[in-house]
């Protein structure tokens, strides 16, 4: 176990150095991400300029909701984003290289890339957290802060878990990247806004099937003291557990896919 931690940092360090070879591209990506997220934030502001509230959420509350999603997505990009292109690795045969080495292939594949451009997400979301905390006068007790961290971890595990499941689809269907764009990209956009505004079946789906509601909506409702109609009060406290469970399921699906890959080789 300790060996794996050490190895992870070594592999990841290599990944970072590899990326820093393209410094200009690196900076441009960070700038690009911050621009894109600011764009969404500005859109929210314009939207609420006349209307003040969206499903009883005001502009700052929505920003807070958005920032939680972005922060956990940032970690997710770092750790798991490359999982979506497993299909390419399988098709051009480079995936086999992870199978001729004496370490866990899931771990090896995970440690292969480390996308530091996610700094854009961190800068953006931390700025928003500070701004919103001042505007809304959020009283950050130690417990609250700890809960925020725990639900960020939960959010990383949920979104990472979905990326892992999407990548595992490649073992069966030889497609994964496209599933990302059909399933996950729209789902992520959906959760930028409070779930309460959507039809019930969408809310239900994002709470119990693909638990994206636990990435930001439920935890943000707990921290901001908002109501979550149709759902038990404080359901957000479950976020870290949901994350762990979902990720474990995802991991086993991936391993199942791998054993299928080993018996079919396709």
């Amino acid at each position: 176990m300790l060996r794996y931690v050490e190895l992870y940092f070594k592999l990841v360090g290599a990944g970072i150095r590899a990326q820093l070879q393209y410094r200009f591209a690196f900076v441009m990506r960070i700038v690009g991400m911050i621009t894109a997220y600011s764009g969404t934030a500005i859109t929210m502001w314009v939207m609420l300029y006349q209307f003040q509230e969206l499903g009883s959420w005001n502009f700052y509350e929505m920003l807070f909701l958005f920032a939680i999603a972005i922060l956990s997505w940032g970690f997710c990009i770092i750790l798991f984003f490359h999982f979506r292109s497993l299909d390419t690795y399988i098709l051009n045969g480079t995936f086999d290289r992870f199978l001729v080495r004496p370490i866990n292939p899931f771990f090896h594949f995970m440690a292969m890339k480390f996308d530091v451009a996610a700094f854009g997400q961190f800068i953006f979301s931390i700025f928003i957290f500070i701004w919103v905390s001042i505007e809304l006068g959020i009283d950050w007790s130690f417990g609250k802060f700890l809960f925020l961290l725990a639900s960020i971890v939960g959010g990383v595990l949920i979104q990472g878990g979905l990326l892992v499941i999407i990548s595992a689809l490649a073992f069966w269907t030889t497609k994964s990247e496209q599933f990302y764009w059909v399933v996950m990209y729209p789902a992520r956009n959906l959760t930028n806004y409070p779930l309460v505004i959507y039809p019930k079946f969408v809310q239900w789906f994002t709470a119990f099937v693909i638990p994206f509601g636990f990435v930001n909506y439920f935890p943000a409702a707990v921290i901001l003291g908002k109501e979550t109609p149709f759902f038990p009060e404080n359901i957000g406290y479950l976020a870290p557990i949901v994350g762990i469970v979902f990720f474990v399921i995802a991991y086993y699906i991936w391993m199942l896919g791998l054993s299928r890959y080993k018996s079919t080789g396709s």
Partner: peptide, 25 residues
């Protein structure tokens, strides 16, 4: 690398074009 510029373009496309919020709001 055109990443950053592209994002400005997509942002302008979605907001300033009125695609999701009409200009009167």
């Amino acid at each position: 690398e055109t990443g950053g510029i592209e994002d400005i373009f997509y942002f302008a496309m979605s907001l300033l074009s009125g695609s999701v919020i009409p200009l009167w709001f």
